[in-house]
């Protein structure tokens, strides 16, 4: 049981073994593709019902969403599928609030992903130094991941309170009171305040992924680096971190896709109008569709979000597929 969990743990986060440079070799425990058709028929009752649900709710809905984005449906009526055109997309291009939201989404995607990966890596390396109470520390660092964004948004709105929030109190306590800001109402800092709080919540996840990657590196490599007289910093930079590419990739994909769909946290903090400084596509989509009932326009924004997500996951899944790691 222990061993199989380990394998899952390592395999799930793409450990370094998977990154073998022998490209095309498909390494699976499955039997040859030449199986009896009887097997196919017998497998149907197991996967068809779930596949129908996924097909309808995921893929059917995505197609339907694209279709709606081609209509001009708004208000209380029903979509008219008779006249389809790209007018909603034309409207997007000239909409200043869409351009602002698009830019903010990209800033969030890049900054949040980089920050979470870097902090997660640093924490994983600290944890991996053979410390005591490792489980305790790990449990604390991952704890924010178990909380709802509604809960963490409430905590952080209190953290960022300009008068008595922990952030400003801390800055004043260490003599940096001049840096105290209206973190979540000042347009200059809003988005960064969100990014920092989300980093707080997700860096524990990155730590888990990196830790699995670190644990998959054979001990001999640490020994060899030590024998060569490499300093600890050098050992990590030259030997260890380059082997964590697979962990970085899979964590980055999850973080980027999350950044695209991040909604709950911003919605609880700002409602459906975060203002141009912190508006992102997922919030804008909700506002257009569900607050102002511009359904077709909201669907068009959703299609853009889907295309962005596809741009992140398609190359990743393709590479996974080629390596036979699905």
């Amino acid at each position: 049981m222990r061993r199989s969990i380990r394998r899952l743990f390592g395999g799930g986060s793409g450990n370094s073994d998977d990154a073998r440079p022998d490209g095309g070799t498909v390494t699976t425990g499955r039997k040859s593709a030449l199986a009896l058709d009887g097997e196919f028929v017998q497998s149907l009752p197991f996967w068809v019902p779930p596949a129908l649900l996924v097909g309808l709710f995921v893929y059917g809905a995505i197609g339907w969403n694209v279709l709606i984005s081609l209509t001009d449906w708004s208000g209380l009526g029903q979509p008219d599928y008779g006249s389809l055109d790209l007018s909603m997309y034309a409207r997007l291009v000239s909409d200043q609030s869409f351009i602002a939201a698009f830019r903010n989404t990209l800033v969030l995607l890049v900054a949040f992903t980089l920050a979470s990966l870097l902090v997660g890596l640093a924490v994983a390396i600290l944890i991996d130094r053979g410390i005591r109470f490792e489980n305790g520390f790990r449990t604390v660092y991952l704890l924010p991941m178990s909380l709802s964004f509604v809960v963490t948004a409430i905590f952080w709105s209190w953290m960022y309170n300009p008068q008595v929030g922990v952030i400003n109190e801390f800055l004043r306590a260490v003599g940096l009171g001049a840096l105290a800001q209206q973190w979540i109402s000042d347009p200059r800092f809003k988005l960064w305040a969100v990014i920092f709080a989300l980093m707080w919540q997700f860096s524990g996840y990155c730590m888990v992924v990196y830790l699995a990657g670190l644990r998959a590196i054979p001990t001999e490599q640490y020994e060899a680096a030590k024998v060569d007289g490499a300093s600890t910093v050098r050992m990590y930079r030259r030997v260890i971190i380059p082997q964590l590419r697979a962990s970085t990739t899979s964590a980055a994909v999850v973080l980027m896709v999350f950044a695209l769909k991040a909604f709950d946290f911003l919605f609880v903090l700002f409602g459906d109008t975060p203002g141009p400084a912190a508006d992102i596509l997922s919030v804008m989509m909700f506002r257009e569709a569900f607050s102002t009932t511009n359904w077709a326009y909201g669907s068009a924004i959703a299609t853009v979000l889907f295309a962005l997500a596809l741009g992140v996951i398609a190359p990743y899944l393709f590479v996974q597929y080629r390596r036979g790691e699905l």
């Binding site: 097997e39 569709a289 959703a302 996951i313 899944l317 699905l326």
Partner: peptide, 30 residues
Amino acid sequence: VDWRGQIAVLLLFVAGVFIPYQAVLVPLTR
């Protein structure tokens, strides 16, 4: 259970993990 083409079906399941829910929200309410 081994059969040809299962990877293709599986790929659709795996891709489903990464779908931004906004992309299905309007059809879902509909």
